[in-house]
């Protein structure tokens, strides 16, 4: 694929399972450098797991993950922590440290990884908070924030070290329409202004398609398709079409695997 001549992240022959359940089976994914890539798919297909595999918080059963050319699957633990400094990750819940204020949460990565003076840290924290529209909320504790605000604070924390890549885990869930519009713009703006590589895991088709350069559709342990948002929206593949157009049932079943409904209700009564 010509788009991926210079991928920032490369996953080759990646297989991962949780217990008996296979999540990914020999998946190849390349995330192009400097672009916004959406990873989409129905709930429960392992999108968040994919981000954890990229961040090497989980180890694949087979295959390897290359981040900026370095293989994280065989890396030593201490080296891994230094590679992770190049990545920012926005967790679905925000995952703010509940014992620190908003200000201290954002200052945390700076205090740990840099020797900046307190005045400089203050300026950087306020700039990042201003970017997400929450400069006035600096003294609040995470428990005093709404879910959407917590996510924006977490975004400020994720970008405070100016990472090379940001991973967003379901960034659009639970945002009100106003904050949503701002967030969508913000992700795009950050990517272009800071020359980042962005990965968005989401099942919000409209928002993700509107800011992504490329989209992967995953489902059923495989990559179903890859291309520009337009290509994906116009895809002929029935499984991709079902997801992108939000059809309730199709080749990808709405039901979690189960035995026959009729048999289940009227059957032997072994329950």
């Amino acid at each position: 694929m010509e788009l991926c001549e210079d991928p920032y992240i490369e996953m080759q022959g990646l297989s991962f399972s949780r217990g008996e359940r296979v999540i990914f089976d020999k998946v190849d994914i390349a995330i192009p450098r400097g672009k916004v890539t959406g990873i989409m798919g129905p709930s429960g297909t392992g999108k968040t797991t994919l981000l954890k595999l990229i961040g090497a918080q989980l180890r694949p059963d087979r295959g390897c993950v290359l981040v900026d050319g370095e293989n994280t699957t065989t890396m030593k633990r201490s080296k891994l922590f230094s590679v992770r400094k190049k990545m920012g990750m926005l967790f679905q819940s925000g995952a703010l440290f509940t014992d620190l204020s908003v200000y201290e949460n954002i200052a945390f990565p700076l205090r740990v990884h840099t020797d900046l003076s307190e005045a400089l840290i203050r300026d950087m924290v306020l700039m990042k908070l201003h970017a997400v529209g929450l400069r006035g909320a600096r003294d609040l504790m995470p428990s005093e924030l709404s879910g959407g605000m917590a996510r924006r604070v977490a975004l400020a924390r994720a970008i405070v070290l100016d990472p090379e890549m940001i991973m967003y885990d379901e960034p659009f869930v639970g945002q009100d329409p106003m904050a949503m519009g701002v967030l969508v713009q913000l992700i795009r703006m950050l990517n272009d202004a800071l020359k980042l590589t962005s990965v968005i895991v989401s099942h919000d088709v409209r928002e993700t398609a509107s800011i992504s350069d490329y989209i992967y559709v995953v489902g059923d342990t495989h990559v179903l398709g890859f291309g520009t948002p337009q290509q994906m929206l116009n895809s002929e593949d029935p499984r991709i079409r079902q997801f992108m157009q939000g059809l309730p049932d199709g080749p990808v079943p709405f039901q979690y695997p189960a035995k026959d409904y009729r048999e289940d209700l009227l059957g032997s009564g072994d329950a």
Partner: peptide, 14 residues
């Protein structure tokens, strides 16, 4: 449970 340990790992702190 609230992913604070995970997010700390991703910030690059053990």
């Amino acid at each position: 449970a609230t992913e604070q340990l995970s997010s700390m790992e991703m910030i690059g702190v053990d």
